[in-house]
Design a protein around this nucleic acid. Structure first.
Lengths: 243, 243
DNA sequence: TCAAAAGTGTTTCAGGTACACCCATGG
DNA sequence: CCATGGGTGTACCTGAAACACTTTTGA
């Protein structure tokens, strides 16, 4: 049937003019996670395509001819949230044949973590909305699949790297931090064990402040020690990056 | 500068004709791992492009207009190794501006695990060659980056799933299995602890055979219990897929 | 004084690591 | 009989999990 090893013209081995090839577009789609009201949320935009009228979609755009994939994602984030320097991670690429009504569009999915408070004011355009992750049932295109894949990857990643701090403000209580982990992992955690583990990792700074306006004993506030974490990353045999 | 939330025409929200867009090609590149001679190897092909004369490249090809990404990878594997049903996993997508001299080519990287013995006979075309992973210094295009990313992902994945058996024959000794883990992880493992761990996972079947032609006491041979592993995967709360 | 959450230690268990000796085979 | 790797068990350590009471604040 096939002839194994036969030398067909191939873009990796022989000269091919890609202009003779076919029409395909490349897009990026960003799953932007935020945490608010003890709930993990995702920023979505209303889709006006005839085929998906009224559905919500991820924030994405075509990649420009002279634009890197990561650059395109940062551009989308900047345009939609007004924020620079967000955490961004490539998740997976989706290239199903009929995933987009405009034609063949291959999309590279990213997820991003933002502090929802920093962003809130810029939501003037009300086609944009933060949706609780749990409430999202259907989406435009194959975006529900992309969301699911991104969320799974987020769940994995927060167990390996201290990413959650990107979802919180500068100051936070241990309760907030635990609520966030519980929201992402969909579990209940034991408070004592949780605090022990956090304190073992030694990356929080006690800023000698306490919560205010709470109808009970206020908790202490902490901030994440970025410097220390950076240094641990740079150590050749740090615990964090080992195997 | 930017206007956050402004409604620019966007492929996710408004109708756009992608034919008005730009020329880009999509390819897949497969990192095909094999294990032979106690060494982890990668199947490469000689590149005949002027720019990379004499360099080795990954096996890849343009994705056809009516072809899924996974389908394209399986096609490349089939064409080059003659083998069906190989294990295939998407790794990451590379879309740097000048990664390919033919123009803008965005490539989706996959890795695959094959039993090098099943394949060996089909290597009639000697532009194809198995290279020890350690010896590979430079490659055509950005393929060294792709290889590195794929290898990292392989190292991670074999600690989570019993993938290594796809690199071995049906029958194997515990020594072979350990050598394989050591080759992939680049470490030495304690023999007793290794055997204990393997036996704890309970996925090997003792086939009551022993090695032959070895100049010392022959080891027992085992095979991987696919059925049992499949069943564990299907359990809702199996150890393997938890989290 | 009550309600609500903050804060805190000990015990148990499982999995990982370190480590040394006798055994079976081929030459 | 010797060289080579096969095969095996125990002690220790670390990290995860289970679990309950006292303290502080606001209302």
């Amino acid at each position: 049937m096939n002839s194994p090893g036969a030398r067909k013209p191939n873009i990796n081995t022989t000269a091919i003019d890609i202009n003779d090839y076919f029409k395909v577009a490349i897009s990026v789609d960003c799953v932007i996670f935020g945490f608010d009201d003890n709930t993990l949320k995702v920023l979505l935009i209303k889709c006006n395509l005839e085929e998906y009228k009224g559905c919500w979609s991820l924030l994405g755009d075509l990649v420009l001819p002279e634009e890197d994939l990561d650059t395109a994602s940062y551009r989308v984030l900047k345009e939609r949230t007004g924020l620079d320097d967000l955490y961004l991670e490539q998740v997976q690429t989706f290239g199903g044949l009929n995933r987009h009504p405009a034609g063949r569009v291959v999309t590279i999915a990213y997820y991003s973590l933002v502090n929802i408070r920093h962003h809130q004011l810029k939501l003037s355009d009300n086609e944009l909305h933060w949706h609780p992750l749990k409430d999202i049932r259907t989406m435009a295109f194959d975006h529900k699949m992309i969301l699911d894949a991104s969320y799974s990857q987020l769940q994995k990643n927060i167990q390996e790297k201290p990413l959650v701090f990107k979802l919180l403000g500068n100051k936070f209580s241990l309760r907030e931090l635990q609520n966030l982990y519980e929201a992402i992992l969909c579990t209940k955690l034991d408070r004592r064990n949780f605090r022990k583990k956090i304190s073992t990792m030694g990356l929080l700074i006690d800023i000698n402040e306490t919560e205010s306006d709470v109808p009970h004993r206020p908790g202490k506030l902490y901030r994440f020690n970025h410097q220390k974490y950076q240094k641990e990353l740079e150590k050749p045999d740090g615990k964090i990056n080992k195997q």
